[in-house]
Amino acid sequence: MDIGILVKEGPYNHQASDTAYKFAKAAMKKGHRIDAVFFYNDGVNNASKDMDPPQDDRHIGNRWVELCQKDKIPMMVCIAAAKRRGIVDDVLIDCGEITGLGNFTDIAIRNDRLMIFGD
């Protein structure tokens, strides 16, 4: 199955980023393909490269980079939501890409499932 993922809340502030990551890993383990992760609302903060959590905590930014580099999953950030919140190219995680809601529409259309995490 092809699955798109939408994350609507920021990292650490909300469990959404964690649940989305765990779900993506479990889905891939069962042979499904994650087509893309799209960040919307405060979810765009997931794409900030400057996260620096305490060493004994999970690093959410690195998780997205891992999914992108190892599993080739595009990490897409909504431009309108990102601009409002000061998320610009200079602060993006490796392989994060700022894009439009049109791309999200394509994700919603072309996949078998759209998984949404957040508030």
Binding site: K8, F23, A26, K30, F117
Partner: peptide
């Protein structure tokens, strides 16, 4: 477990009440 979550998603469209 998360695996069971995925299995439910295999069988059904999803409506996430946020």
């Amino acid at each position: 477990e998360y695996e069971g979550f995925v299995e439910l998603v295999e069988e059904h469209q999803v409506n996430s009440w946020l």
